[in-house]
Simulated assay, not measured.
Amino acid sequence: MNAFTLRSIVNVETLQEIQERFSDVTGLGVIIADDQGVPVTSPTNFTNFCKHMRSSQEGMRCCVWSDKKVGLIAAKQAKPSIHYCHSGLVDIAAPIVLNDKHLGSVLCGQVLLEDQDEKQLDKIREKTKHLPIDQELLQLYFEKIEFTSQKKIEASTEMLQLVANHIVKLGA
């Protein structure tokens, strides 16, 4: 039983379809990653900021590390976790667990919180300056990131758990 991986229990095309429907409903960027934070699906509705971040090897490494970290937090809590990614954007992870084994996570977000993150914008910009990517373009993309209400984040978190549970049922 412990040899199961997310890719071995659920068809990746099915995961992609589930992910795309969730993104259609919430408007959030979504990806499904394995227990190491490595993407299993192709990103859906990612912000240009995040696409640009992931375009460099170092940026991708940081994103995978961040996805792994929030996925493990969610798995340990046995419920979705709201977290800030390495660049400072809101990220939500719902664990995909089968037979007590964390197989991966459904991750969404790539937004900033209204009335909270406006004060943190300069700190967020600072976190990404070290990456070997076009910083002017990154700044332009950063300025287009949406601010989202806490209520929408909480509703998306609850819905994300339903998606993760559906994936587990497919695998079981």
Rank of each mutant, 00 (worst) to 15 (best):
T14M: 09
S81Y: 06
V10R: 13
K152H: 12
M53T: 12
Q19V: 11
F142W: 07
K69A: 06
E158L: 13
R7D: 07
E146H: 11
K129C: 03
K123M: 03
M1C: 09
G171T: 00
K123R: 04
Q116P: 00
E136H: 02
I145E: 02
G104M: 03
S8E: 11
A3R: 04
T47C: 12
G59C: 10
F142P: 07
R54S: 13
I9C: 15
K123H: 01
L131D: 09
H86N: 11
E58R: 01
Q120F: 08
C63R: 10
H83V: 00
F147D: 09
D115C: 02
D67Q: 03
E154A: 13
L107Y: 01
K76Q: 12
K144T: 05
H130R: 00
F22P: 03
S55P: 02
L72T: 09
I153D: 04
I153K: 01
R54P: 00
H52M: 15
I73T: 05
E118M: 10
L15K: 00
E20W: 08
V163F: 06
V111T: 12
D115A: 03
A93H: 11
H130A: 01
L140A: 13
G37R: 04
A78M: 06
V163C: 14
L103D: 10
E114H: 09
V168D: 11
L113W: 00
V10W: 14
N165V: 01
A75Y: 03
D24K: 09
S66M: 12
H83I: 00
A93I: 09
T5E: 04
V25R: 14
I124R: 11
K169F: 13
I9V: 15
F22H: 09
T157M: 11
N165Y: 08
T14Q: 12
L137I: 08
Q16V: 07
L138W: 04
C62M: 12
I32A: 08
Q116I: 09
T128Y: 08
F147L: 13
N45C: 08
A74F: 06
C62D: 15
R125S: 06
E146R: 13
P95R: 07
E136M: 03
A164F: 00
I92K: 01
E114A: 05
K144C: 07
E143T: 07
A155L: 10
K69C: 04
Q110G: 08
G71V: 03
K79R: 11
V97M: 14
V97Y: 06
S87R: 02
V38Q: 15
G104C: 05
R7I: 05
P132S: 05
K76T: 03
C50M: 15
D100Q: 13
